[in-house]
C-alpha cells in the first residue's frame, strides 16, 4: 500500500514552473532514490511534500490522510521527517541538545510542567537523555557531545542531522543529499545506517547526486527532469534508460 503519495503536484516560482504535474507514490518500507539534473525540481518536490512550501496544486497523502500544505511540525507528528540539503544545525546548541530537542511529546515543553518541574517531565527527560545518548553513540559523535554544533565538520553535521531526525522515530524519512560534501568512508557509513533503518522497516526517500552510492542503496529510482517525472524503476534499468542518459549528459532539450 502506498504510504506517501503526491498527485499532480504543481509549484510555480514567478514565471518558472519548478514542478509540473508531478505524481509519485512511495510504498511502506521502500527505499527510494530521487535524482535528476540541477533544477529538475527535486528539492522543490521535497519542500512541497514536507510542508516547507505549499504546492500551488495537487495533493499530498500520508498514510491515507490528505496532508497537502500541512506545516512541517504537524507532518513531524504524523511521522514524516526530513533533512536539509545544506545541513541546518542548531549551531548555538550543543550536539546533545540538538538531538534531545527532537524528542516528541515532552511534557516539559509546556509552561506549567516546566514551571513546577513536574515528575512526568523529569521521567520523560530521563528517557529522552538515554535515547539521545544511544543515537549520539550510534553515529559516533560521543566525543563531540558537548561541542557546539557550529564546531562540527560537514560530515559530522550530516551525522548529527540524521541522529536528530531519528529521535523522532519517523515512519518516513526524507533525506536531501545526505552524502553531499562527505568523504567516501563516511558516505559508506551513512549509507549503511540508511540501509539498517530501512531494514528495520523505515520508509526512506533520498535525493542524491552521488549516483554510485545511490543506485547501490535504493530499491527504486525516480528521475525528475524539468519538474516532471522522467523515468522510474529499478536502478539498473533506469541508469541504462536513454532518456536518463540524455538528461544527464545533455543532448537537445525538447
Amino acid at each position: 500500500m502506498s504510504l506517501l503519495s503526491a498527485e499532480g503536484l504543481v509549484k510555480d516560482f514567478g514565471g518558472l514552473r519548478a514542478i509540473d504535474d508531478l505524481s509519485v507514490s512511495i510504498d511502506e518500507g521502500e527505499l527510494v532514490g530521487v535524482m535528476g539534473p540541477n533544477g529538475a525540481g527535486k528539492s522543490t518536490f521535497f519542500n512541497c511534500v514536507s510542508g516547507v512550501i505549499p504546492p500551488d496544486d495537487g495533493t499530498v497523502t500520508l498514510d491515507g490522510t490528505d496532508v497537502t500544505g500541512d506545516p512541517p511540525e504537524s507532518l513531524a507528528h504524523r511521522g514524516l521527517v526530513r533533512t536539509f540539503q545544506n545541513t541546518r544545525e542548531l549551531e548555538t546548541m550543543t550536539v546533545r541538545d540538538n538531538v534531545r530537542l527532537a524528542a516528541p511529546d515532552q511534557p516539559g515543553e509546556r509552561t506549567l510542567p516546566a514551571l513546577v518541574r513536574s515528575g512526568s517531565m523529569r521521567e520523560h527527560e530521563e528517557t529522552v537523555r538515554e535515547r539521545a545518548e544511544e543515537l549520539i553513540e550510534t553515529f559516533e559523535l560521543d566525543h563531540l557531545a558537548d561541542e557546539y554544533s557550529s564546531n562540527l565538520s560537514g560530515g559530522q553535521r550530516k551525522l548529527l542531522e540524521l541522529a536528530r531526525t531519528l529521535m523522532l522515530d519517523p515512519e518516513v524519512l526524507m533525506l536531501d543529499e545526505p552524502f553531499a560534501g562527505v568523504n567516501p568512508t563516511l558516505t559508506g557509513e551513512i549509507a549503511d545506517h540508511i540501509r539498517d533503518l530501512n531494514a528495520d522497516g523505515m520508509t526512506v526517500v533520498i535525493i542524491e547526486h552521488e549516483l554510485e552510492t545511490l543506485t547501490e542503496l535504493v530499491d527504486r529510482l525516480i528521475v525528475l527532469r524539468q519538474g516532471r517525472l522522467l523515468v522510474e524503476g529499478e536502478p539498473e534499468a533506469v541508469l541504462e534508460d536513454e532518456r536518463v542518459i540524455e538528461a544527464y549528459l545533455g543532448g537537445d532539450a525538447e
Binding site: 516547507v52 512541517p72 541546518r88 549551531e91 546548541m93 515543553e109 529521535m167 523522532l168
Partner: peptide
C-alpha cells in the same frame, strides 16, 4: 531548549515537530 532552538533556526525547530 525549544526557545533556544527557535533562536538558532526556526525551520529546523518546526521540522522536528
Amino acid at each position: 531548549r525549544v526557545l533556544r532552538a527557535i533562536r538558532a533556526d526556526e525551520l529546523v525547530t518546526r521540522s522536528v515537530g
